[in-house]
Structure formats: structure tokens, C-alpha cells
Write a protein that binds this DNA or RNA. Structure first.
Length: 472
DNA sequence: TGAAATGTTGGGGCG
DNA sequence: ACGCCCCAACATTTC
């Protein structure tokens, strides 16, 4: 048999069900198709493209240079390859974005008509979204019952698969080079990212190893402190499938509170995919319809300050600079800056979502949209509207020494807590001594935290009553 | 996976 | 020794 294995968001060799299965049946042509420019596709952000480039490069090297690249409509690409290489079977691992599900089933249908055997596998989720329902047959909408009564009471995630002994790869002459995919031309400042990340399958395993050795034992208590090394930083690796969640799940199975808490976080990832599968409008529409009536502010200047990390509120700005500088943001900081954008600035969560989409290496349709719906309060199991983070209080609690702020805001490096958390409250002489001149070297806050909170509470309260009136 | 306002309690200073 | 006040610390409620 001669088959194609189509790499998508499973850029790995280990524990790759589709690839291992393909290898059992004969010779395998490994390919990658850049397909997000097509109508209906959800175009990747620039950070994702940069990571993808390097991940593909790494994968290609571990395949001995035999990975073939293509651009365009997968059906047309396949038809070309099938003719040229005399292919009988096509293997891939499933993706779960609605546009991909639709497209993949179409591809399957067309190829089957042409006599090609198409087989798909699960390489990305611990539980398939269509295997978990409430007793009444409806999908879960709340995390805890989804996870406990749904996931954990189902069959445990499978063990990692044994490595394929030896894969006999085919080569083709009609593939393109990686560079023609043109994935990195929009990022000219990419080299700095390499200080923070080791991209590819080996890097993913290295991150896991470091986390198991140094982070996991302090995970539950330590994960909330953005300057401490207790998070796994596996999210971009997971997004691109450089490592499988099954392998991670099995590696974490210790049963103490840290293990359980980390597994719970993997559970949130499952929940995001589950929601996206059952409610495919998740990236576009408020899950709770009453939020459709909310009057978001158009504040282009505020939005610009937020993106650039120039809001004048150090904990927020440090996080936004972390995103720009490293292509990543600590989980707690995502909540802090999200709450600030949506609740203090009253800007629509789509603005935050699309900035994250463009800047995050782990930008993921399911996680990004469910995360933003959560923080905005319009999600299915979301933070209630009155839960508004105070970025000064959050800094006092989770960055007490100011280490995180200092790391990403060099202009405040000589200012110490507590004034570091709210420079506008600092006495003149403190600012002078630290070389800070508000309005010049660092901005005044663009909103008053207390007043904007009160405004938001009022606005969201109104939303609640008006929707009650209109829905009756 | 919140923060602020409000309520409660208990120890200590003091007449 | 007693009652009173103050206030910090903690608990509960509200948004």
C-alpha cells in the first residue's frame, strides 16, 4: 500500500495514532498543506505562523527531509498527489474547529468516491466531544459536572502508543519547500522568541520534563504567580500537537493535589473543545444572548494603549508586554488583562480575542474564544459580570516583590512596591528617585480603576434588567 | 479563577 | 471588676 499521512495539528512522531496506523500498512508519504487562506478557513495569526514555520522545520528534519509541503485547497492537492504518486490511502488525525470538521467530511466524501480509503484518528483530545452528554442527552454547559460526571466517569484516557518500529517514507517531487509557505515574512523580530522557547517535538518533551521535575510539585499554589516557574508552558506545544495530551495525562498521574489540579486544567482544555464542538458559533457569538444588547465602547485610543502595554497600570502593562515580547502570557495575567479590557474599558471581548489570536503562540480557536467568553461573563460557565479584577490588588497578591513587573517594564525598574503597583499614588520624591516621570517615561492611568469599576457594575446591571424586560 | 461593603467578634485601653 | 469604646481581624453579603 502507498498512503499519504496528512500532518495538521499533530506535528509529532511519538504517540501519533494516524501516522502509526499508516506505517503499519506500507509506505507513507508525509505531507503538510497550508490551507487556512481558503474561504471558510480561520486564518492563523502571525505568531502562530512563526511557530508553525519552526515546528514544521523541526518535524521535517526528524523525517529526514521527506516532509512535502503544499498550499491551497486540500482536495485539489490530494487529487494531484494521488495521480502523481499512485496513492491508495489517506490518513489524518482529527481537528475540531467547525470549519475544519465541515471541510474534512467533504474531503472524505470526495476522496472516497474516487476510490481512496480515508482514515481519521484522535490525536488531540482525551475524550471525544460526541461521547459525553448529560443524562438528559444534552451537552454539558458547566465545567465541573462536565469534567467530573462526564470525563472522569468515562473510560480513562488511553496510554501513549508504542513507537512505530520503522516507518518507510515515500518522497515526492511535486512538493514545495517550507520557505514557499511564507510563514515568517510578517514577523521580522522573531529571533528574540528563540530565547524563550524550544520549538518542536523535542522541545515539547523537554518542557514536560522540566515541569515534572521542577514545577508540578508546587503547581497548585505556585501557578498563580506569574514570575514563578511553576506552570508547564506546554500550551503552544499542545496546540500544534508537538506532544499529545495523552502522554502528558499519563505523566501526571500521581493523585496528589498538584497532579489533580494540573489534570483539571487539561480538563478545561477539553471543555473548550467540547463547547466549540457543540456550539460552533462560540468564536463569533455571545454564548449568553443577553449580552448581545450590551453597548460596548468604541475606544480606539484605549484599545491601542492596552495592546501596547501603555495603560499606565503596571500589572496590566507588564502582561501585555510579556505577550509582545515572548508570544505568551501567564494564565492569571490573561484574566487580569481580559477583565481590564472588558470591564474597566468596556471594550468588546472580540477585540481582545483577535489581538491574542495574532500574538499568542498558543492561539487556539477553542481555548481563545472560550477564555474570552469566560472573562467577559457571556460564556456558558463564565465569570459573573460583577467579578472585576483590581489590577493593583492582583499585583499585591500575586507579584508581591514586583519581580514580574520589573521583568517586563524596564522603565519602572527602580520603583519598588507598593508604589510600583500604582505609580500615580507615589509621592513625588519616590518617583524622582526612581527616574519615573508620569506622562513622559510612563503613562498616567488611562482610566480610574475605582470609577470604571462602578461604571461597569452599573452598565452590566442595566443589561440584566433590560434583558429581563425584553425576554418576558 | 474578585473586590468592596457590611456585619460580627474579641481583646485591650481606659474611666 | 465592670462597662464602654475602639479597632483589627475575620466572616458574610452584595455587586
Amino acid at each position: 500500500m502507498r498512503s499519504v499521512f496528512w500532518f495538521r495539528q499533530d506535528l509529532r512522531i511519538q504517540d501519533n495514532p494516524g501516522l502509526i496506523e499508516a506505517a503499519k500498512n506500507g509506505k507513507v508519504l508525509p505531507i503538510y498543506i497550508l490551507d487556512d487562506e481558503n474561504p471558510g478557513g480561520y486564518k492563523m495569526g502571525n505568531a502562530s505562523r512563526w511557530w508553525l514555520h519552526h515546528s514544521l522545520k523541526s518535524l521535517s528534519e526528524s523525517l529526514g527531509g521527506k516532509l512535502a509541503f503544499f498550499v491551497g485547497n486540500p482536495i485539489e492537492v490530494f487529487q494531484k498527489i494521488i495521480r502523481s504518486e499512485n496513492i491508495q490511502e489517506i490518513y489524518w488525525n482529527r481537528c475540531y474547529e467547525p470549519w475544519r470538521i465541515q471541510r474534512d467530511s467533504k474531503i472524505k466524501e470526495v476522496l472516497k468516491k474516487e476510490g481512496i480509503n480515508v482514515k481519521s484518528f484522535n490525536a488531540s483530545l482525551l475524550w471525544e466531544p460526541w461521547e459525553i452528554y448529560k443524562k438528559d442527552g444534552n451537552p454539558f454547559k458547566v465545567f465541573t459536572p462536565f469534567y467530573k460526571k462526564g470525563c472522569l466517569s468515562c473510560e480513562s484516557p488511553r496510554l501513549p502508543l508504542l513507537k512505530a518500529k520503522e516507518i518507510c517514507f515515500l518522497e515526492t517531487s511535486i512538493g514545495l519547500s517550507l520557505n514557499t509557505l511564507d510563514l515568517i515574512s510578517n514577523i521580522h523580530w522573531g529571533e528574540k522568541f528563540k530565547d524563550y522557547w524550544k520549538i518542536g517535538e523535542e522541545g515539547a518533551h523537554q518542557s514536560l520534563k522540566i515541569f515534572l521535575k521542577k514545577g508540578l510539585a508546587f503547581y497548585k499554589g505556585g501557578r498563580d504567580f506569574p514570575s514563578r516557574p511553576y506552570t508547564s508552558r506546554l500550551s503552544p506545544h499542545l496546540h500544534f500537537g508537538e506532544i499529545s495530551p495523552h502522554l502528558i495525562w499519563q505523566a501526571i498521574k500521581g493523585g496528589n493535589e498538584n497532579h489533580l489540579h494540573f489534570q483539571n486544567e487539561l480538563g478545561w482544555r477539553e471543555f473548550s473543545y467540547y463547547l466549540l464542538y457543540h456550539f460552533p458559533t462560540l468564536p463569533n457569538e455571545n454564548f449568553q444572548k443577553k449580552y448581545d444588547h450590551f453597548q460596548w465602547k468604541k475606544s480606539p485610543e484605549h484599545l491601542r494603549c492596552w495592546k501596547k502595554g501603555k495603560t499606565g497600570i503596571p500589572f496590566v502593562d507588564a502582561a501585555m508586554r510579556e505577550l509582545w515580547e515572548t508570544g505568551y502570557m501567564h494564565n492569571r495575567m490573561r484574566m487580569v488583562v481580559g477583565s481590564f479590557l472588558v470591564k474597566n474599558l468596556l471594550i468588546h471581548w472580540h477585540e481582545g480575542e483577535s489581538w491574542f489570536w495574532d500574538c499568542l503562540f498558543d492561539a487556539d480557536l477553542a481555548n481563545n474564544s472560550s477564555g474570552w467568553q469566560w472573562i467577559a461573563g457571556c460564556g456558558s460557565d463564565a465569570a459573573p459580570y460583577f467579578r472585576i479584577f483590581n489590577p493593583v490588588t492582583q499585583a499585591e497578591k500575586f507579584d508581591p516583590e514586583g519581580t514580574y513587573i520589573h521583568q517586563f517594564l524596564p522603565e519602572l525598574r527602580n520603583l519598588s512596591p507598593p508604589y510600583l503597583f500604582a505609580p500615580w499614588t507615589a509621592p513625588k520624591e519616590f518617583l524622582e528617585k526612581a527616574g519615573v516621570e508620569l506622562g513622559k517615561t510612563y503613562p498616567f492611568p488611562i482610566v480610574d480603576i475605582k470609577k470604571s469599576r462602578e461604571d461597569a457594575l452599573l452598565a452590566f446591571r442595566n443589561l440584566k434588567t433590560s434583558s429581563n424586560l425584553t425576554s418576558g
